[in-house]
Amino acid sequence: MNGKIKILIVEDEMIIGANLSLQLSELGYEVTGIVPRGEQALQHIATNPPDILLLDINLKGSLDGIETAEKMQQTQNIPIIYLTANTDDAHFNRAKKTHPHGFISKPYKKLDLQRTIELTLTQIALKNEEDDVLQNVESLILSDSIFVRHNNSMVKVDINDILYIEAERNYCRIYSKNKEYLLVTTLKDMDEKLPRKHFLRVHRSYIVSISKISELANGHIVVGKKAIPISKSLKDELLNRLQTI
């Protein structure tokens, strides 16, 4: 985040809202507004989204604070800190579903406000670091699954669903039961990372799931109705592996 951290206060008790604004300004934050209703908060967020939403749970009007958060999260992902004088289980369980970064109980202390915001900013920074790392990762290979990049997110693919993997120059295409995934990595790299008990490289352009082989011929195998060539140098290893499954 560049510059001052922007915080929107959504509070229908204007004396509390004004006091919050003063204290946040003293702590070095920029208050983008003080609004008393959830509907107004949503309008404000649409045109001037803050970095943090300081949101009273018990708002008057057609939307309470939790409903306001739910509507906001349909289009944006702004960290929420709830203000509340009511900490009963029903409110807490509703609020928890919106994954807030914190709760501040009224009457609040300035130190509570300061620490909750600092913890929220730490969580945001850690998440941003994780996102930056994942942006540079095309696949994460675990013992029972692979996380592959698909449409700007990491998608889990179960090992048991993978049929075969085909090389396309410096790319690999994973063929599973239901989908295909294109990865920016070489087949050699995939071969080194995949669990050996499940997969075998049978050709310079193919890795197959051994348990998914349905036919074995002189020069090829069949996996998921796909005829895949076998290199002569790898045929004996394939036969040995088939005898052990």
Rank of each mutant, 00 (worst) to 15 (best):
E168D: 06
D144F: 14
E70Y: 00
Q23M: 09
P36W: 02
I228N: 00
L234Y: 03
S21V: 04
L111N: 10
V137G: 10
I57P: 06
D236K: 13
T116P: 10
T47M: 11
N128T: 14
I245Y: 00
L54Q: 01
P36N: 04
K71D: 01
L20Q: 05
Y82T: 05
V157M: 12
L55H: 03
D131P: 08
G219S: 08
Y82E: 00
I80V: 07
I80P: 07
L200N: 04
N218E: 01
D64F: 09
A227E: 05
Q43D: 13
N151F: 10
E118I: 02
A217F: 03
I124T: 10
N2S: 14
E70R: 04
L234G: 02
K106R: 15
I146V: 13
D189L: 08
L183Q: 11
Y108H: 05
I80G: 04
A85P: 11
G102E: 08
A69T: 00
L182K: 12
D131F: 02
R115I: 11
F103T: 05
D158K: 14
S105K: 09
L142E: 02
L8C: 09
D161H: 07
E168K: 06
Y164G: 05
I5W: 02
I165D: 03
Q135C: 12
D12S: 08
V133A: 14
L83C: 14
N77D: 14
K212F: 06
K109I: 07
L140F: 04
N86M: 08
S205K: 01
T122S: 12
T84W: 00
E237I: 04
Q243T: 08
N152R: 13
V10Y: 00
N19K: 09
G38L: 01
L27M: 13
L182M: 15
V155M: 07
K177R: 13
H203S: 12
E30L: 01
K6E: 07
A167D: 03
L134W: 03
M1C: 06
K156S: 15
K96I: 09
I162A: 14
L20R: 05
A217H: 05
K71N: 04
L183R: 09
S153G: 15
T185F: 00
H150M: 15
K197N: 12
S205W: 01
I230H: 03
K193Q: 14
V35F: 07
T47H: 07
G65E: 00
P107D: 09
V155A: 12
L187I: 15
I78W: 02
L27G: 03
H150I: 11
I45K: 01
D191A: 13
L182A: 12
R94V: 01
L119F: 01
E129H: 12
G65V: 00
D64L: 05
G61I: 11
V202S: 02
I5C: 09
V133M: 13
S233V: 04
N170E: 12
S62C: 00
E192N: 15
Y175G: 03
G3M: 09
T87Q: 13
G17W: 03
I66A: 11
L83E: 02
S176G: 14
G61A: 05
E26I: 03
S105C: 11
E168Q: 03
L83Q: 03
Y181P: 13
T84Q: 04
R196Y: 09
D88R: 11
K109S: 14
I230L: 07
L238D: 06
S214V: 11
S176M: 09
I52L: 10
D132N: 15
L113F: 14
